Simulated assay, not measured.
Amino acid sequence: MFCNPFLLNEEFMISRIDVTDAAKAVIQELAEKHGPLMFYQAGGCCEGTQPQCFEKGGFYPRMNDAMIGLVEGFEFWIDRDLFEYWQYSHFTLDVLDGFGPGGFSLETPMGKTFKIHYRLFTEAELKDLEPVIRNE
């Protein structure tokens, strides 16, 4: 039986990622149109470092990439190298009007682009962070 570590001691664990109401609305619309989703934030190059939204299974995380949590029930993966840089930061997924780099993300035809706002965790938060799942 699969045990989701993000549901264990949920009231005591500090989430690594949250989502704004505006992003929730876009995610709901995308899920209604495309079904199950997933998010991936790459480490640069052509796609930049903006998070991208795909149909579940439409993108395969690389070995040792990190899943930092669930966004509206959908996995949020981060490039392994980018995670090493941002591992002490809380992520807030937001959405803006405009077109992000690459144009492969599902929100692009809506004239939207997902964006992450970062803040450093406090020392107290670092002691109780939700676990990270690595792609093996």
Rank of each mutant, 00 (worst) to 15 (best):
Y60V: 11
L37M: 06
P5T: 00
D97I: 10
L30Q: 11
D81W: 06
F74T: 00
N4G: 11
G35S: 07
F54M: 15
V132W: 04
T49H: 06
P101L: 11
P5R: 02
D79M: 05
L129A: 00
G102F: 05
G111Q: 14
P131K: 06
I27L: 15
G44L: 00
E84Q: 15
F114W: 07
L82N: 06
T113A: 10
T108C: 05
Q50P: 07
C3Q: 11
E136G: 15
E123C: 08
P36Y: 01
E32I: 03
F6N: 02
E72W: 02
Q28R: 08
K56N: 14
F76L: 12
G43N: 12
G73M: 00
T92F: 10
G103W: 07
F6H: 05
M63Q: 15
N9C: 05
L30E: 12
F76H: 10
Q52I: 03
E47A: 15
P36G: 02
T92C: 12
H34M: 05
H34C: 03
Y88L: 13
P131M: 05
H34Y: 15
G69M: 07
E123D: 13
F114Q: 08
V95T: 15
G98F: 07
Q41A: 14
V19F: 03
G98E: 00
F104K: 13
R134N: 05
H34Q: 06
G103K: 09
Y60F: 14
Y88T: 13
D65K: 09
G44D: 03
F91M: 04
E130W: 00
P101T: 15
P131W: 01
R16E: 00
K115C: 00
W77I: 02
F74K: 00
M1V: 02
G73E: 09
F104M: 14
I133P: 05
L30T: 09
E72Q: 06
K115H: 08
P109N: 12
F91I: 02
K56Q: 14
G57K: 13
H117A: 02
E10Y: 10
E10R: 14
R119Y: 12
A22Y: 03
F6G: 00
W77T: 08
